[in-house]
Structures are given as C-alpha cells and as structure tokens.
C-alpha cells in the first residue's frame, strides 16, 4: 500500500484530503452544534449599534482590544462578569481579539459613559494620561454608513433567522422605518455629547461616525 501511494500522486492527494477532512469534522462539528444558542436576554444589535460595530471593525479596534473576559478573579475584578458563549450569538464576525494592547471591552458599556467616550475618542490622553491609543478625531467628521448597517441587519434576518421584529426584540422593519429608529436612537446620544459640530450635523439629519461607535460601545454590557 505504501509503495503504491508513493507513486500515485493523485491518490496521495486524495488520502491527505480525507485525513484532513475527517479531522475537521470530528474536532469541529460537534462544538459547532452545541454553542451559539443565544443566552436569554441577549438581543441582536440595532442598526445604529451595528453601524458602530462596522466602524469598530473598519478601524481594527480588535487589534488592540479583546472582548473576552476569562473566568479568573483578576479578570472579573477588572472587567466584570466573565463572558459566556451564548452572549456572542449575534456577533458576526466574533470580535474576541488576540491581544490586549488596551483593556478588554466586552462590558465597557457598564462603566463608561457617552461623555467619557466622546472625550476619549477625541483625545485619549485627556481622560487616561499615558494612553497610547491613537486619536480618532476623524470620526467626528465622517458620516456613518446607515445603508450598509441596514443591509447587514436585513441579511442576517433573512439568511440566518436573526430574530429582528420578534416580540421583545429590536425592530428592524423597512428601510425607512429603520432609518427613523436609528435617527431617534442617535438623538439620545447626541443629547449627551458636547461637540457642537456633531450636534449641528445631527439637526440636518447627518449622523457622524462617533455617534454610532458610542452607541455600540454603550451596548457592550
């Protein structure tokens, strides 16, 4: 058998593939079936939060910030209750990160306010002396992309049966309804902010990126 494999590259390739595929099925598939059932009380993101999440991804915040609190006392003391698998059921993609250059953010909404985030994004050192985080002033100028956020929410609802519009769950509705809801949700955050330019833009119906990312950060609890 071994002689034969050595001389038949095609069957050699098939053999390698079978071994790899079997390994993949046995090690991954059962875990797959078990996890990803949402924990009770976990809700999908609103379009505004989703837009913020896309901004988080666009700027690769996950390169420096984890969203995974491990079950050690030193971590729960610092960041709050440890993370559970079911809390991530609506995270596409997952944002656990692989390195903590900055602190974990999985429950940052519990202990940081809109005001704090606003100051921090504009100039991190104003609230955390010695911080090495870049300044994200451009988020105060760039408008958020509602359309893509809506497209994502609509897609996960249609394709993956994410429970938007179900009782007790966030409403998505039509494009117009969703937009109206996002503007309303943004209004509450803008009211807590200081930046005049952001407030003026909001009055003209223009939501800046900073508003969406704060909405997302506040939702992390």
């Amino acid at each position: 058998m071994f002689h034969w494999l050595e001389k038949n590259p095609f069957f050699f390739a098939v053999g390698v593939f079978v071994v790899i595929a079997y390994a993949g099925i046995v090690t991954v598939v059962p875990d797959f079936m078990e996890s990803a059932r949402p924990l009770k009380g976990v809700k999908p993101y609103t379009t505004l939060q989703l837009a913020g999440r896309q901004i988080y991804i666009e700027n690769d915040c996950n390169a420096c910030h984890s969203q995974l609190i491990r079950p050690f006392k030193s971590e729960t003391d610092r960041y709050g209750k440890y993370s559970l698998s079911g809390e991530y059921a609506y995270d596409r993609p997952f944002l656990w990160g692989s390195r903590r250059i900055g602190p974990d953010l999985h429950r940052v909404g519990n202990y940081r306010t809109t005001d704090w985030n606003e100051n921090h994004m504009l100039d991190p050192e104003s609230v955390v002396p010695g911080s090495i985080m870049p300044k994200y002033g451009f988020m105060f100028d760039k408008s958020m992309d509602f359309d893509t956020a809506y497209a994502e929410a609509y897609t996960v609802k249609k394709v993956f049966n994410v429970p938007y519009d179900k009782p007790g769950m966030p409403k998505l509705g039509t494009y117009e309804e969703a937009k109206k809801a996002a503007i309303k949700e943004a209004g509450a955050i803008v009211a807590d902010m200081k930046d005049q330019a952001v407030k003026d833009a909001y009055k003209k119906g223009d939501i800046k990126e900073i508003v969406a990312i704060i909405a997302y950060l506040n939702s992390l609890k």
Binding site: V28, D31, F32, S35, A36, Q54, S85, E87, Y88, A89, Y90, D91, R92, P93, F94, W96, D145, D147, T148, A149, Y150, A151, E152, Y154, T155, V156, K158, V159, F160, Y175
Partner: peptide, 26 residues
C-alpha cells in the same frame, strides 16, 4: 449583504458563522 438587501456597500459581507462558532472556525 448588498445582494440580499440591495443597499449599502457592494463589497460588504457578513460571516456565515456567529460568535463562538466563528471564533472556532477562525
């Protein structure tokens, strides 16, 4: 997402896997 919803950026996509499963595959 564009091909499902018809709005937004054409190149944007969303992962087939969610949460812990996405992490596992990744």
């Amino acid at each position: 997402t564009y091909f499902v919803a018809g709005v937004g950026k054409w190149y944007h996509s969303v992962s087939m896997y969610a949460g812990s499963n996405d992490a596992m595959v990744q």
